[in-house]
Design a protein around this nucleic acid. Structure first.
Lengths: 166, 166
DNA sequence: TTGAATTTTCAAAATATTTTGAAAGGAATG
DNA sequence: CATTCCTTTCAAAATATTTTGAAAATTCAA
């Protein structure tokens, strides 16, 4: 496999994968492209390489910046904006974990807490409360795991964890 | 909040959440409904409670069975099929972890292995290989984490892990 | 200021996904 | 068997998401 083939395959694969994760294809491909780019790229470069429209590029670049996965660079003497990706993959993972925790875990915890306040008068209500309590535990685990990723500034604890389960 | 309100809110919330996870609303709501049902339900019950069509119910029930999250029950003297959910939430989590690992992690590992075989002749290729190697580590971590969930028949190790990071 | 270069916005178009419902398929009953 | 009851399938319709592209906004240099 040549480098160009590998590059295409990488960008394509990342895009396909991301859609299973609720991230749209353009955003994922954009991220993939910037991840493997040795230099920062201008919007034009991106539009051309991925064959997407200006609007699409603009919106997804912004979303990626919101996620903290890419940065804007201003080159002296250049009017255009350039973009480059965060290359420390663990930092990327931390960033994603942090965002997903905020967007997905936190709201569920709130709803579960609300729901566990109903009176346990009927069998249905009791079953319901059991399920809610169980889900609370699982969500707690997910939360802890994401926190582990987020807080692992050093790789030591992570390494310990991996050793135990491998 | 009354039980009925709580039930509706739970089903609705679960459905909304799931769509961020690439699972469709009907499937998630169906699962939520069965999770909190104290008795197994017939297709008709489900159609009525969730206001969905017969075809929709049929397809999503099958998908949930494929995921190992619900079971079919045949009641003596009844011609209709009944469905009930796996109520052990940790088992549900394990099942989901197992499926996602199979569907998402395994293919990525294969592609990454393919890609890391390119010759490191240019700076671009070298950067690419660095990124691929880094992603390999992150994916390895995700894999280990899912394995931890999958293999944790007992809660002991899980508890240890949580203690360390909490 | 003005105007050229660049980015952002957003309604409409394109695409993708989900849902429906009716027809076809199966299985149990008499 | 034929009939009834129930489930599955799948093309078409409905919905939701993504993408486009041109107009509006912004930025910077002169």
């Amino acid at each position: 496999m040549t480098f160009d083939e590998a590059k295409d395959k990488f960008i394509h694969t990342w895009g396909t994968l991301a859609s299973q994760w609720g991230i749209n294809r353009s955003m994922a491909q954009l991220h993939a492209l910037l991840l493997i780019a040795p230099e920062s790229l201008a919007t034009e470069d991106i539009m051309e390489q991925l064959q997407i429209s200006r609007g699409n590029a603009s919106m997804n670049l912004r979303d990626l910046m919101d996620w903290g996965l890419i940065y804007k660079q201003l080159k002296p003497g250049e009017r255009r904006e350039f973009f480059y990706a965060e290359k420390d993959i663990w930092k990327v993972a931390r960033q994603v974990a942090k965002e997903r925790r905020r967007r997905e875990i936190t709201p569920v915890v709130e709803v579960l807490n609300e729901l566990k306040a109903i009176p346990p008068d009927t069998p249905e209500a009791q079953e319901f409360l059991r399920v809610i309590a169980g889900l609370g535990n699982v969500v707690g685990f997910a939360d802890s795991t994401l926190n582990a990723v987020i807080k692992a500034e050093e790789n030591w604890l992570m390494g310990q964890f991996l050793k135990v389960f491998r």
